[in-house]
Amino acid sequence: MVNPSELYEFVRGPMTWLALAIFLAGSAIQLHRLFRLSARKQRRLLRAAPPKKRAPATPSLGQRMTGWRTALRRSVLGRHPLLIGLTVLFHTLLFITPLFARGHQVLLYDAWRFSLPSFVEPLTDALTVAVISCAAVFLGRRLFSAPVRALSGVTDFLLLGITVAPFVTGWLAFRQIGPYPQIIIAHMLSGQLMLIALGVTKLGHMIFFFFTRLGINSEHSLAAGSRTW
């Protein structure tokens, strides 16, 4: 039988470093692959005709509004504003809630005599509930929205579970619901599992998102686009 305090020390110490190392190495390998495969640009086969020289016409406010409305309607933001809002909130909170949690900062100070500012505990508590609620909405979509259900496999449910598990266990530990020593170990292990998954699974979109959307000059990136394939 493993002694809980020994297990706690192991999870807090070597296991954390191992998870961090897998996360960093996995991300570095994936990023390297991404850049290697996107470095070569395909020659553009078709070019738009140069614009005819005309006296510049100033579009009226109404014309501009129509243009914006059309562009918005064609975008994912215009089609699903509520869901996009929820997604942005979820992803922002995934990052900032653990970063500024008081308990984490205390541990950081204990280890390295250094800490970041932290949120007051009721705020962290509320943000954690918000993350869990967003995850519940995403789970509902996976289960009840026909197109999303058709796309979803076991891995997708598993990854959602891995993402939200540290928040559920953290909330239970904070509220002292259930056996605290086991819950806090489960909290740390689930956090480390998430860290590992960030490096080796499609949760790596945490890093890739910025590169695919902004950095790489592909047709759909927000940067100046030309096809890379």
Binding site: P147, V148, G204, T212, T228
Partner: peptide, 30 residues
Amino acid sequence: KKQLKLFLSICAKCGLCAESCFYYRNHRDP
């Protein structure tokens, strides 16, 4: 086109692309 394999592996299967397809919007075929 190995790049496409990488991009396929990033797909989070969120289904947000569904409404951008006129075929899906007309037939509602998942």
